[in-house]
Amino acid sequence: MLHDALLIIRKDLKIEFRSKVTTNQVAPMAIVILILFAFALDTHQHKLILAAPGLFWVAVLFSMSLAIHRSFSIETSSSTRDGLRLLGLDPGGIFLGKVIVLTIEMFVLEIILGFGIVVLYSATLHNYFLLISITILSTLGLAAAGTIFGSLASSFKTKDTLLPLLFLPISAPVLLSATKAFQTELGTVIGSSHPWIRILGVFAVVYLTVGVLAFGPLLEEQ
C-alpha cells in the first residue's frame, strides 16, 4: 500500500512540478482572498489582527476545494484512473498518495498565506513548531475528506459546483478547531489549544480510515 502511495506521490508531484497550476494559479488566488477580506473588514488594523486566524483558514478551505478539483481533473482528463486500476495498484495506496500530495501542495500554499497574514494583517507568529503541527494536522484531515469527496463527485458533469457543496460543510469542524487553535497560538484569545488539536487529530484519523476503506468500492465501479 505504501509503495503504491509513493508511486502516486511521485506521479502527481511531477505533474504539478511541470504544470505549476497550484503555485501559479491557486496561490495567487488565495492572496487575492486575503486582500478582499481586508476590504470587507474596512482595513481596521485591530479587526484584521483579531480575524487573521479565521480568515487564514477560510482562504485555505477555498483554495483547497480548487486544489482537490485539480487533483481529480488530472486523473479524468487522460483517463489515468483506468490506467491506475489496470496497474493493480492498491486503492488505499492511491488514496493515501493523493492525500499526501494534496497536503504537500497545500502546505506550500499555507506558508505563502502565513506570510500573507503577517504582512497584510500584521499578525505576529511565534511558537512555530506548534503552528506548523496544527497546520499539517488540519491539512491532512481536510485533504482526506476532500479526496473522498473529490472521487465521489468526479465523473459527474456538475462536479465543479457539487464538490464545494459537499466538501465545505463537512470541513466545518476543522475550520472551527484550526481557527481556535491558531487564535490561542497567535495570542488573540487566551486559552489552551490542546482540545482543538485533539479534534483535528480525530478528524484526520477518521477520514483517513474512511478513505482507505471507501476508495476501493469507489474505484472498482464504472
Binding site: 469542524p173 477518521v206 477520514y207
Partner: peptide, 22 residues
C-alpha cells in the same frame, strides 16, 4: 456514491457536535 456520502455526513455529526460544544 450517495451511500458513502451519507455515511460520511453521519460520521461528521459527532465531530461537529464536539467542536461546537467546546
Amino acid at each position: 456514491r450517495s451511500a458513502i456520502a451519507a455515511l460520511i455526513a453521519f460520521i461528521d455529526v459527532p465531530i461537529v457536535q464536539m467542536s461546537v460544544l467546546w
